[in-house]
């Protein structure tokens, strides 16, 4: 999946990156060995997982002020969300086992 590398005449000078936030195109979800599985029912939408997620991978509905899930494209599986959740809404499950299930 490696993108074709560009020649020196094709890229902006000085190593300047002109597309802000394009790291969003780099999916870190592949790093994950354990996945946080969220229990919607017990969630009180306190947003502790959201404020502490180091990968900005907690998805929210801004208008309705609701937590809506984990963005698995970026979640690295650190487990911080599970630790900080006051209602223990997350279960960390091994990715391999989840695939087997």
């Amino acid at each position: 999946m490696a993108a074709k590398l560009k020649g020196w005449k094709e890229i902006p000078e000085a190593g300047t990156i002109v597309e802000p936030g394009n790291a969003r195109n780099y999916k870190t979800g592949g790093w994950r060995s354990d996945r946080p599985v969220w229990n919607k029912e017990t969630c009180i939408h306190c947003f502790f997982c959201w404020i502490w997620c180091p990968d900005m991978a907690v998805q929210v509905d801004q208008a309705n002020k609701k937590m809506t899930g984990i963005n698995l494209e970026y979640c690295k599986g650190c487990g911080v969300c599970a630790e900080v959740c006051p209602k223990k809404c997350f279960t960390m499950k091994n990715e391999k086992e989840l695939t087997n299930e």
Partner: peptide
Amino acid sequence: LTSGHRLCPGC
């Protein structure tokens, strides 16, 4: 700071 950065899990 957007997703897709490569700091360690739990940093």
